[in-house]
Every structure is written in C-alpha cells, then in structure tokens.
Design a protein around this nucleic acid. Structure first.
Lengths: 206, 206, 206, 206
DNA sequence: CATGAATGAGGATTCATTCAT
DNA sequence: TATGAATGAATCCTCATTCAT
C-alpha cells in the first residue's frame, strides 16, 4: 500500500519535474540563457514560484536537470548504436551522423545548450559532467575496440575520442551558423574519411 | 608639440586600460566569469568604480577589451607561423603545437576564455566574432593551399579547418582537466598524424 | 468564489498601492521632489525596496500614481460643482473657492504638486496630461455655456479658461508664499469680480 | 593700475561666465533639463570641467545664473515699458504683448525655462527669486498707480499683478502647445479687455 | 588660471530565495 | 502540497565635486 503510494508519488514527482524542465527549455529557447529567471520559469510552467523549490533545491539543480533531460533522447539513440555490433569505424560514423541529425532537429535549443555545455564546464569541472564523461568513454571504448582488433593504430583512445567528438561539434557549428544544404550523412562521412584515412593524398600509384 | 602630448596621453591611456584589463583577468581567474562585477574589478585594479567608466563605456566594452587583449599574444604567434613558408602540413602541426602550449601556459585563464569564446558566440553570431573567423579562415587557407598543391585530398577546407581547431580544443580540454605528462609536441604530432594519415592501420603493401 | 478572492486581492492591492503612494507623499513633502528615491520611499512605507516593484513597474509609474492619487479628492469636489446647475459665473467663483481651499488644506504637498504639474508638462506635452486637459475643458465648457446664454461676451473659451485657472494658481502662490489672513472666499470673490466686471472703475452712469 | 587690471579682470570674468551660461542654455534647449551635467556644459563651452568651478561655486549657482541671464533681455524690454509714461492700462497691455512676443521668439528655450521657474520656486522659495519678485512688484506698482488715479477699483495690487502675470503665462502655454495663428497683439488685447472690463456683457442698453 | 583624471556616494532595478498561509 | 508576497543583497551606471599638476 505504502509502496504503491510512494511509487505513485515518485511518478507524479517525475512528471512535475519534467513539466518544469520543459518550461525552462521553452524559456531558454525563446529568451536566451541569461533570461532564465525563476519567475519566468514558474510562469511558463503555470505554477507558483515557490513550487519550483519543492522539486529542485535551487536554480543550479534545476539547470542541471535541464541539461540531463535534454540530452536524454540523444543519449538513448547513441546508446543503441554503441551497443550494436557494428564494426568500430562504422559505429563512429553513425554516431557522428546521429549526433549531427539530432542537433539539426533541435537547432534553436541546441545552439544554447552547446553554450551551456561549455559554460557549465567551468563551474562544474567537465570531469563531473557525467553525461559527457560517459559519452566520451563510450566513444573511447569503441576506439579501443578498434585498436584491439588491429583495425586502428595504437593511439590514446580517450584523446582521439575527444577529438572526434569536438570535430563533430565543429561540423555542428558550421551547420548551424552557415546552414547549407550538405546532408548530414555527407558531413558524417567526411569526418569518418579524415579520421580513418587522413587528409593526405594516397601517394599510392608510386 | 601637441602631437607629442596627445601621443603621450594615448600611451598613458593604453597603459591604464591594460591595468584594468589585467584586473579583470585576475578577477575572472580567481572568481569565475559570473563574478566579474565592476566593483570587484575596480577594487582589484585599485581604482574607483567610476574610473572604470572613464576608460570603458560599459561592462560589455570592458569585457570585449579583455577578450581582445588576452588573445593578442597567441594571435601574434600564430600569425608568424601562418605567414611562414612551411609546407601546409607542417604549418598545421606547428600551429596546433603553439596553440596547446599557449593554453598550457595560461591554464587558469584560458579555461574561462574558451568559455567566453563560445559564450559570446551566442550573443554575437559566431560569424561576427572577427578573431575566430580570422583564425578559421587562416587555417582554411592553409588547407586550401595543401589541396592546391595536391598534398591533400579535395575537401571542404573550412569544415576541415573547423574540425582541426576543435580537435585542438579537445586536446586542450583533455590536458586541462586530466593534466598528464604528455608533452605538448606529442599531442600536436598525434593530431597531425590522424588528420593527415588517419587512424586506420595501413593494411596495404605489407 | 474565485471572483471573491480576486476581488479581495484587488482591494488589498489597492490598499498597498495607497500605502506606498502615501509614503511617497510624505517623502515628497519632507524632503522635496528630487529626494524621492526608491530607497527612501521603501523605508518610509516600511517595506523592502523590491516590494515597490511588485506594485509599480518603475519609478515613473509610481510617480504617476502619486499624481493621480493626490488629485483625486480635488477632482471629485470640482466635478460635483461642474455637474451642478449653478449659473456659469457662480460656478466659476465656487470652483476657484474650492480650488484655493483644497490647496490651503494641503499646503506643503501642493506646493510640490504644482511643481509637478508643470514639470510633467515638459516631459509629456501638456496636451497629454489628461487631468489638466479635462479640467481646462470643463472650465471652458462653463464659459461657453455663459457665452451661449448671452451672459458673457463672445471670447475664446479655452483661452479664458486657461487664464482663469492660472489666475487661480497665482492667488494660490500668493497665499502659499505670503500666507496672510485673507479668507479663501474673499480671494475667490475678487477673482470673479475682476474676470466678470473688470478692474476699471465704472465711470459711467454716475 | 591695479584698479585697471582688476577692472579688466572683472570684465573678462563676466565674459567667461556668459560663455558658460550660454553653453548651459544650449544644453538645456537641446537635451532638456535633466540632462544638464557639468560634463556636458563644459564640453559645450569648450572648457575643462574644473574650470566651471572657478566661475560658479556649484551647479546650483550656475543654474541660478542661467535663469538670471536668460531673463535679461525680457527684463530690459519690460523695464523700458515700465518706466514709460503710458497710462496704467496701456502699460499693462503692452507688457503682456512684449511678454508673449518674447516667449514666441524663444519658444524652445522658454518652454523649459518656465518649467524651471516653477521648479526652482520650490527649492528657493519664490520670494527669493529676485527677478520674479521685481517683476511682480513692478506690475503691482502700475496697478497701484491706476488705483491711485482712480482708474481702477481699489484692489490688492500684488494679487492682481500675480493674476495678470499668470494669465499671461496661461496664454503663453496656450500659444506654445496649441500654436495657432492668433497674433500676439490680439491675445494681449483680450487679456486687457477681460482684466479691465470683465467678461460680462454690458447690460447697458437697459 | 586652467585642466581633466579620479573619486565615490547615490540611484534604479533585478531576482534567487524564504516563509506564513 | 502549493502558493506568491516579501525580501534585500547585488549589480550597473551617473555625475557633482575635488585636487595635483
């Protein structure tokens, strides 16, 4: 009985939190990061300002939840890929593809979220950003696998993973601020090409 | 005569501005971006609050000056390299090296500057951030040169440049948050290796 | 039910606003117009500075409310007179009387309100000051009526109304800065005498 | 010798003061009362800020001088009239005429000066404003003369003078804010008509 | 005499957080 | 659990005045 109730409560709680987080996202998207005030969030969520504090200790906790929440769908998609049994190079290319696509679909919001990623990386040391670390490690794992399989040269997997991710972000920026017509797939392929085969012309025919 | 005086004044002025900018940097480094207040800056600079406004119209202008000022040494160093007549791939490797080294030397400050780079990219569209754009174009130019010389495969030079820069930043982050003993040169070499020859083991001619 | 609550709230709100406005008036009376600061007002009202902003968007709105509020009693009294069916000349004399009396009763405050009247007339074109315009038009209406009834000579009613009002203000000033013992009624009568019969000795039918 | 020098000095001094006062007037006219800052005045006068304080003790003294100075031409013109040997009623009509004309010619500036007149009347008790008092007394003198000559009814000359002046101001306002085509002379005549003969239709022909 | 850099008190406004209901 | 009025510290900016040169 009690279990049930507390369960119900937990669900209710999560629902409320989600409502609030989504309100923050709307405020963020419409007004920009600096304009996120507890007032606006409460108004947007249709609840009282004080209520926010029943669900989140303070503003920082709320913003952390936003970050967490908004990366959720992407993380899930990427997890699928990571778990799959594609060969490492394919995996990486597809991850990049999904990554770019996801951002493409949430352009407005993500422009600011990216910002937030780096922004917060100051306040709370990047290493503490679980999501990022997880992601980084997952990609590093894939690379490590490739190395183990003698597919890749022996490299510092984590560093390469970071480079891959940031290169992806670079393409992202490019797509965002100079939106062109290049399909996501093509950019992902280019990324893969460079990272796997390098920019150098194959001197081959020598 | 008058020229002289106005010249002297201009120099004085620049010195004062520099003093203030350096105070900002100290505040920034010690307290973080959000804690930069005009009061704190004035206190740190050892001048009155009002005096700040004699040298900078408002906070925004002051912060812009900080950005400008603190990138100066790096920009100068990179410019030298860019102007040099090294082959494109060497140029890029050295640029990465310098870049990493510069950050290494100004670790605390730069962590926040990076932040600022992205932060401002929100306010003022990345395309309008002259510094970044200049830098991006310079690197793209080098790549284009490499392509023209048949050294590199035909690629979108700007995108690749962005990827290079961000990969550099990735290494930077890595160095910053997981400071290890890898020398800067080695990281730069790895970056070059991957971008020029790829991660794939050469199965080839074995 | 809900109506009730919102009604109650509105009443409460109005009461709070009134409290604040009265605090402003006290500050105004005691320290003068230039010394009205949000700090002082809050202190005088016994509330926090921030609270002011719950009831008034900004200082301007607060000052506008003060003006509105403090003219209220006078406006009501004058309206009664204006609506009455006294003959035009009587009406005008009584209006002047009431006017002078009202000021007499709120001497300290009114000295500054007069000021404010002119002061605002700079910021917001006199023609846009509803109160003044209304009042001016009401008096002009009375005069027009007198003209229509062949009681007054054909004159520009608005101009004469303005003259009447300002003459009233002149007497006001006189009473304020050289306070004497002349009763209000006498001054009002003099005003009426002059405006209706002129200063000239009737040489005539003697 | 010394006398000479000190004389020269005094002239020089007056000239400087005038320069400054005129700068204030320009600032006042162009930017409005609230925007008169010592900085702006100094800049407009083409001198250093500190220099202002060599000629005027503080801002208040400077503003007082502005008031004084700007009424000068009007005062001179009115003095001529006052000294003339016209009959009292003519004098008054002409004074009104000159008054209105003067304002008509300096519309922009005067709109603000009027404001200032009342504005300052709070800070420094109207009775202390020499100019106004002088003017008031002069007009009162004329009226007294009229009374003595049995031309006017026995009235409180000062009060009537104040009413006359303010009525004049009323017409002024009217002209300023609803600028029409009525010539100054006509308004002055109307003023005289009313004050001397009253608004009442002469029942005469009875 | 003249300068103008420096001052710092003072003002308006915002907003995260608390707490009585 | 929910509310939302109240708080007041914190922030940016202005400007009259002083004083060393």
């Amino acid at each position: 009985m009690k279990k049930n109730k507390s369960n119900r409560k937990r669900i209710w709680d999560a629902a409320k939190k989600q409502t609030i987080v989504q309100a923050v996202i709307r405020v963020l998207t419409e007004h920009g990061f600096e304009r996120i005030t507890m007032d606006r969030v409460a108004a947007e969520a249709g609840i009282a300002k004080g209520t926010l504090y029943l669900y989140f200790k303070d503003k920082d906790e709320l913003l952390a939840a936003v970050l967490e929440f908004s990366l959720e769908p992407l993380v899930r998609k990427l997890d699928e890929l990571i778990q799959s049994d594609l060969p490492p190079d394919r995996k990486i290319e597809y991850i990049a593809q999904r990554y770019l696509k996801y951002f493409e679909e949430n352009r407005d919001f993500y422009r600011i979220l990216l910002l937030e990623r780096v922004r917060r990386s100051y306040h709370c040391h990047v290493a503490e950003n679980i999501r990022y670390k997880d992601y980084l490690e997952a990609v590093a794992g894939i690379i490590q696998e490739g190395i183990a399989k003698n597919l890749f040269k022996p490299l510092d997997a984590v560093k390469v993973a970071a480079m891959l991710i940031e290169s992806c972000v670079a393409l992202l920026y490019h797509r965002m601020f100079w939106p062109g017509t290049t399909p996501v797939e093509e950019d992902a392929r280019m990324l893969a090409q460079i990272f796997f085969h390098g920019m150098h012309r194959e001197v081959s025919a020598a």
